[in-house]
Amino acid sequence: MKTRIAALAALFVLAAWGGLHLIHQTTSSASAPGQTVLSVYTTGQATTPQMPLWKALAEGDLSFTPDIHYWKNLDDLRGLLLAGKGDIWVGHIDGFAQAAMRGAPVRLVSVTGWKKFYLLTSRPGIRTFDDILALPTGAEIASTPPHSPGAAVLRALEKKGLPAFTYAPYEPKQLALMAVQGKADLLLLPEPLVTVLLRKAPHLRIVASVEEEYGRLTGKPAMLPIAGIAVNLETLKNNPGLADRIARALAGQEAELKRDPAAGLDTMPKEFEKFIPRDMVLSSLERDIIHVRSAHEARDMIRDYLDMVFSGENGEGSRMLPESFFGGAS
């Protein structure tokens, strides 16, 4: 009975986190007379990647009024991008890039999400990443979301000695239920789902950070350009310099957010509390990093990352990405 209650509780939290996304919400902010109104499409699944944006808006570093919309899932976001619907988008770098390579009017402005994926387990014999390295080829790792960038990075690390594991994809709510019931004991997950599961399934523990192990095995920085802020190219025609202004404003928030991450939460729209409780967000920030770079600055890291994520898609990597994709002040 206790297991069933815990499982239902986990699913309830996941629904709030955004795993079910039953509602496509819209929130309009009151605009100052004569001030530009821009539609911002965002998600309740992300916290750190968008805190600099909301803080910059709250403090007047950006002089437009956001008309806030919430995309429901990655398919919904992909459709918005390809249709060119919206002025500003908060989302995943690979999703932005994939849309741009298919002709969508997308310019990435800033990378704001750099550390998201973790390996969790309940197996007594797995305590460190070295124990993961000792697993046999073909060992199964349950992963979420489907087509997880974290799994793509781990596959790329096979060239650095990581065994070729089998990654079993699941929807977040499905994998959460399996984990709570003890039916999955080696998992690959992003924050803030990691925090949710650690509370609801205390038999699980973190073994490793994908980004940290990427850095250790490659000798590169232990971070990856996972999420950020993009702007519609059509919007930029009517708002010259907007991409640079956003990039500078977000970068200007980095130092203060590093000192006090909670200050960023205070400026986010109140609707975010419907997706994941504030205390869970604060806990997830303990494993996240505050780091803001323009797409122009992070171009090489973005290309390296996309070459890993898209390596199985006809080998296209980042070669088909237009140069107009990389925006923001240098």
Rank of each mutant, 00 (worst) to 15 (best):
G317P: 04
N238I: 04
T195M: 05
D131W: 01
T144A: 14
A139I: 01
P136F: 06
S294D: 05
V106H: 09
M280D: 09
T36K: 14
H147P: 04
L257D: 00
T3K: 04
I5W: 14
K258H: 05
D61R: 15
S29A: 14
R127F: 01
V37S: 13
R127H: 11
A262L: 06
K72F: 01
P221G: 05
T112W: 01
L8E: 15
S63P: 04
D130N: 15
A184I: 02
Q45G: 12
L133P: 08
R303Q: 05
E211L: 00
I290Q: 00
A243E: 12
E140M: 08
R303K: 14
A142W: 04
V111Y: 01
G228F: 12
I5N: 11
F64G: 01
N314C: 07
P146D: 05
E158W: 01
F272V: 05
Q50T: 04
V90T: 10
L77G: 04
D130M: 09
P33M: 05
S143F: 05
L188I: 02
A184N: 02
D304E: 12
Q50H: 11
L8G: 13
K55D: 10
A9W: 09
K55Q: 14
L188C: 02
L108K: 06
S330C: 07
K55C: 09
S122E: 02
L11F: 01
A176M: 03
R299I: 10
F117L: 10
D185E: 08
E234I: 03
E211Y: 00
D76H: 15
I246A: 11
A134P: 10
Q253K: 11
Q98E: 13
H147V: 14
P261I: 00
T267Q: 12
A255I: 03
G317I: 10
A7D: 15
Q50D: 06
I132Q: 09
L321Y: 11
M320Y: 07
T47N: 11
R303L: 15
S28D: 14
D185K: 05
L162K: 08
Q35A: 12
E211I: 02
Q25L: 14
H291A: 07
A142N: 15
S283P: 00
A30R: 13
D307H: 13
V13E: 12
I206W: 02
V153S: 04
A298F: 13
Y70D: 11
T27R: 11
D185G: 09
L175S: 08
P269E: 07
T128C: 14
S294H: 03
L11M: 14
R205H: 14
A30C: 04
T27H: 10
T235I: 11
